[in-house]
């Protein structure tokens, strides 16, 4: 939370935003059916689906305005002017570039990429290992320069994946993969491995994890005191996903968001070794 004086200045803006938001809710609410019958229920004003949104919108607007009034009373009009001045000054740029703000971008960016790009499409086990590895090393090393580097690296990976999914390279890769399968058959590795080749994204994720591993190794070459932290991070980014994932998938019977290579492997082990104990 901010300090009291700053908080009041922020209140002027947040109160204003709330009031506008409330007005928007009201404007949306007014579009809803007020009188005509909908869903076989006789419709009068008090049954209308708009009733509650209108009430909520009105209350938010009212409270927002009240908040602005209270804040303006406390800091006075001059305080408000100064706050406006701060928004136009280079101080704002400095604030947006400060290390603490950078860390915020990093966390928000990391989560956004993970949740929107990776979880729905890449095997849950593999992508969470990468996610944890990046996340832990970024903060555990306590070095803002490294943090920036690692974050950019993760962004790069995700830019690649974004392209990969947007242009649907998966289907374009299929002939290549079947070619690979043909070769592997040539080497006497029988059909059992073939299904594994159906998950090119997961293989790429594993490759990225490996590259990232090397990249950190190079980045901390000159700081041997980070080496111990490095190994701890590695262990803590591999063990928890497999632990949590296995418990959820096999004990609590929750299918993973995306099931690919790792799940295929675990499934095979599960069905050939453990399943027989239970049934």
């Amino acid at each position: 939370m901010l300090e009291k004086d700053k908080l009041r200045k922020a209140d002027i803006f947040s109160g204003g935003i709330m009031a506008l938001f409330g007005l928007w809710i009201i404007s949306q609410g007014l579009k809803m059916p007020m009188k005509d019958s909908w869903g076989g229920v006789q419709n009068v004003w008090f049954v209308s689906p708009a009733l509650f949104p209108l009430f909520v919108g009105a209350m938010i607007t009212l409270l927002g305005v009240l908040l602005m009034r209270t804040a303006l009373k406390t800091v006075g009009f001059n305080g408000f002017k100064r706050a406006l001045g701060w928004l136009a000054s280079p101080d704002l740029i400095r604030f947006l570039k400060s290390p603490a703000t950078m860390r915020f971008y990093a966390i928000a960016g990391l989560f956004t990429c993970f949740v929107y790009i990776q979880v729905p499409r890449i095997d849950f086990f593999l992508c969470s290992v990468l996610f944890l590895f990046v996340f832990i090393t970024m903060f555990y090393f306590a070095d803002d320069e490294l943090l920036k580097k690692f974050f950019l690296f993760y962004l790069g990976i995700n830019a690649f994946f974004l392209m990969f999914f947007v242009f649907d390279l998966q289907t374009k890769l299929e002939p290549v993969m079947s070619q690979l399968a043909g070769w592997s058959a040539g080497f006497g590795i029988q059909t059992d491995l073939e299904p594994a080749l159906a998950y090119p994204v997961d293989w790429i994720t594993m490759a990225f994890t490996f590259v990232y591993f090397i990249y950190i190794g190079v980045a901390i070459r000159k700081t041997p005191e980070l080496r111990k932290k490095f190994w701890i991070s590695l262990v803590l980014s591999v063990v928890p996903p497999f632990l949590i994932g296995t418990i959820f998938k096999y004990f609590l019977l929750v299918p993973m968001p995306a099931e690919g290579l790792a799940v295929w492997l675990l499934d095979d082990i599960w069905y050939s070794y453990f399943q027989s104990w239970f049934s």
Binding site: Q190, L265, D267, D268, I269, S272
Partner: peptide, 22 residues
Amino acid sequence: LLLAAMTAGNVFAQSFPKRNIT
């Protein structure tokens, strides 16, 4: 894991169902 997967392949002979149903 890969080795385990390979040995696992030919256990089942029955046609349907071969594995658990959801």
